[in-house]
């Protein structure tokens, strides 16, 4: 009973936070709502006995990536005056089509999941130690080794790219100075 109540509260906060995030004009408030939504999602993971994933969600997204978002917003000192009125370059028709595609996808996912038999599983059917580090690590380094390594290469390329772009910018500025 308690679990159900916690589930509904955190699910509501997760969805509500996500909606509020895109409804805000103030970028800092958007980031705050996103953090709220992420924390609620972490609670959902923990309820699924996936403690490790829940902790990583907080450490990586809430603790690192969103701090960087906030950092950039603060550096540019965006206070929301210029936002919200701009309709953007994309036409209404395009927006509608994309929204419909996304809604269709969402419906398809809900439909497939709700018919799956796995839903009947409860925590008693799980292997001991499920959700802690060793089972996750075992899957990462055996079954999903290739995607894991490919992702790490992708991230490395992104890091080198970012460093390169920052350096080129600085080199240009130095040229202008002299």
């Amino acid at each position: 009973m308690l679990e159900v109540i916690i589930f509904y509260i955190s699910a509501l906060i997760a969805i509500g936070g996500a909606v509020m995030m895109i409804a805000q004009r103030n970028p800092v408030a958007s980031v705050l709502y996103l953090i709220l939504s992420l924390v609620a999602q972490a609670v959902l993971y923990i309820q699924l006995e996936a403690l490790f994933v829940g902790a990583l969600l907080i450490i990586v997204y809430a603790g690192a990536i969103l701090v960087l978002f906030l950092f950039v917003i603060m550096l540019l000192n965006l206070r929301g005056e210029k936002f919200g009125y701009d309709q953007g370059k994309v036409g209404v028709a395009t927006k509608l089509i994309f929204s419909l595609v996304l809604i269709f996808e969402l419906a398809a996912v809900v439909h497939t999941v709700s018919r799956s038999t796995n839903l009947a599983r409860t925590s008693e059917h799980l292997n001991p130690g499920f959700g802690s580090v060793p089972p996750v690590a075992e899957l990462l380094y055996t079954k999903y080794l290739l995607p894991f390594e490919l992702t790490s290469i992708l991230l490395l390329v992104a890091i080198i790219g970012a460093v390169l772009m920052a350096r080129r910018d600085r080199a240009d500025k130095e040229k202008e100075m002299t």
């Binding site: 490790f52 907080i58 603790g63 690192a64 701090v67």
Partner: peptide, 11 residues
């Protein structure tokens, strides 16, 4: 990891 998760929110 829990400690690292909550302290990372302190910032």
């Amino acid at each position: 990891l829990f400690i690292f998760a909550v302290t990372s929110l302190g910032v």
